[in-house]
Design a protein around this nucleic acid. Sequence first.
DNA 1: GTCTATACATCGATAGAC
DNA 2: GTCTATCGATGTATAGAC
Lengths: 203, 203
Amino acid sequence: MSNSTDMVDADPRVRRHAVNKARILEEAWKLAGRDGVAGISLGDLAKAVGLRQPSLYTYFRSKSDLYDAMFAEGNRRLLAEVTERKYPEDPREAVLVFAKTMVTFCAADTARYHLLFQRHIPTFEPSRESYDLAELFYDWYRALLKRAGIRRDADLAVLTALIGGLADQQVANDPGGDRWIRLADDVADMFLERLEQKGGFGR
Amino acid sequence: MSNSTDMVDADPRVRRHAVNKARILEEAWKLAGRDGVAGISLGDLAKAVGLRQPSLYTYFRSKSDLYDAMFAEGNRRLLAEVTERKYPEDPREAVLVFAKTMVTFCAADTARYHLLFQRHIPTFEPSRESYDLAELFYDWYRALLKRAGIRRDADLAVLTALIGGLADQQVANDPGGDRWIRLADDVADMFLERLEQKGGFGR
DNA sequence: GTCTATACATCGATAGAC
DNA sequence: GTCTATCGATGTATAGAC
């Protein structure tokens, strides 16, 4: 289970490699923020990081491999953001907090949002390992809803759509702002009230 | 106000040109459906239509011009779809019908949805004329909501986000299906009930 | 690990003959 | 209007020297 990216390695050469890789990844995110995820070129990336373009292949076996690393990192951040936060005891209140947290997370980095939740790059398919991270989040999400009594697929689908819709509007029309973030609470509350008063969706 | 694309022209050469252009556009949509809007190449398009790649420049001054024609056509279809339909007298019911119509329209053509409502192609900016078409729809949309008593910006923003969220999930997770389309009614109804019972969003 | 050099492919666009 | 030929730019990836 040893992994050079999340374990401290004694071998200084291995450590150095990991540090450089992290630096490249960081610069890749910056580029993605400027030109879009799909707009990253290895030439630009190499320049930004002070290397020649072919040297990047020491760290990533292909461009798709770079995307995969970004996808994995984004999902790790999401998982951290969402799980390491304190939630109210009341599971209903917890859902409200979660909704706002999600929209905020999406709005904080447009490129990351596109890579994680939109399928912007047709040629990129996450590796098994990276996809597992995404599923980890999804499992956690389902468990949160379950605690609030939300178990039906359709209800989960609706809440997902509501949060995604807010995030998309926020990212597209007010990047860096909070116009839709501020609405997340009301929208999630509306959703929960509906469930309580009329039961589930689509039946 | 004469326009060769929407008027029948007597000159057979002009007509022929319009017919060919329409044919190319049609093939472009097919390609977009296969490879994504951003994935269209003029080479593939020429091949699909039985021409050599440079010949396309007789019909479009640039690739961006092709996108613009597609954008305009998509908006014209949307406007037609949405305005030529019969709506219930009750403006509240009309909103429900509209919501479902929108999600259905989006789901019917993933590529069109991305071109019209997502900003997938960073290099493409709609021309003034095409953008006017999009605004025409938006005006119509606002008028519909106004009739149902929805006037505040935040409320309009929320409904837009809800519909967009459903459309996005439908397109991303069940293209060609109707899993989220079937939920549109309930979601729109939930939105309207909330307005009636608790007033507007975000205040 | 990093470099230079280069292969190789794709693609948008233009020139000019027919 | 359509063609052939070609330019020029971009961008991924590999070979091999240091």
